[in-house]
Nucleic acid binder design. Structure first.
Ligand code: MN
Ligand code: MN
Ligand code: ZN
Ligand code: ZN
Lengths: 167, 167
DNA sequence: GAACATCCTGCAATTTATTCTCAATAAGCT
DNA sequence: AGCTTATTGAGAATAAATTGCAGGATGTTC
């Protein structure tokens, strides 16, 4: 995915029969200026824009992030929190993946070029067109492990078996 | 296949202060006998059990699949349909990943051992403990591409739905 | 194996994320 | 400018998922 500008976004929208709007431009701009590692929910995005005096209705937020995700401009993240998060979909070499702790939702990003490469290969082989690929690793973080996971952890729940039973 | 038995499931549950119940056993059994490539939502699981005369309340279904996912027995899939799906979490060499068409939700499974390997490496390097890893590739399928995606698609057109097994 | 503590289930009610409806507006085209 | 239609905002509607509670079941301890 290229780095979009207002006019390249407009071009891409128009090419598909869609329209450029101030709302879409503001959303793109916000994501492009978000520090790396930030993942916004629709609500958070709404509130952030609100705080900047750029009121955009929540309906439009939802419609926009969905559209922009399907266009490959944003990526829709399904981390472990019950709602979606969005971030800019950046091309190689900024493309990255996520490790998530199911105990505390801590999320860390990591780069791995070969995953995108293999995804592209697999996708082309099937005749599909890649929009995004995400490797999400669900884990228990070091803190939870230090606390004695799984037996000594506070009641709620814990995890048990890693599928890592060997090569 | 490294399947759980009723007694090994009971052992794991009890080790964490939880209990074996007929409901949990039936859910495990159902997933273990599900043809490969099937992904069940909570509702579908509920209906399937209902059809087998094994009525289990929907609340219990939800609670069970969540618990079993955190235990690493099931994996929770976030494909592009607005609700979660579940399948058995199988270790190498049955571990697999998914390609999904965002237009019609068609899903293809594929194996790729190096992804699990790299996930393990990355996870250990960070001091986390892996429960599951899923590479999800969001795409446009060949059918939708042939129909002129994105602009030329009739508003209610939809690809043929299928789940194809891939090697 | 009976008593006990507490975990689990089923049901209904509730929460929450996301989509939908529709009249008004505005973008893109000629 | 005028026309067509995509898009917006506001709220209602939908659907997935969670929760509170009372009765029932499970595992543990004597
Ligand atoms: Mn990220
Ligand atoms: Mn699968
Ligand atoms: Zn954690
Ligand atoms: Zn498709």
């Amino acid at each position: 995915m290229p780095n979009y500008t207002a006019s390249s976004l407009k071009a891409e929208l128009n090419a598909r029969g869609w329209r450029m709007t101030p709302q879409r431009e503001k959303i793109l701009y916000l994501f492009q200026n978000l520090p790396r590692g930030n993942h916004l929910s629709a609500e958070e995005l709404h509130d952030l824009l609100e705080g900047q005096g750029e009121g955009i209705s929540l309906s439009t937020i939802y419609r926009s992030v969905k559209l922009m995700s399907r266009m490959g401009i944003l990526r829709e993240l399904e981390l472990a929190e019950g709602h979606k998060h969005y971030e800019l979909n950046q091309p190689y070499p900024h493309h990255h993946h996520h490790i998530v702790c199911v105990q505390c939702n801590k999320t860390i990003e990591f780069n791995n070029d070969s995953i995108l490469k293999q995804s592209l290969k697999q996708t082309e082989k099937e005749g599909f067109q890649l929009i995004d690929c995400q490797l999400t690793i669900t884990t228990i973080c070091p803190e939870a492990l230090r606390m004695g996971w799984p037996s000594a952890l506070p009641s709620n729940w814990s995890c048990t078996r890693a599928i890592a039973d060997k090569k």
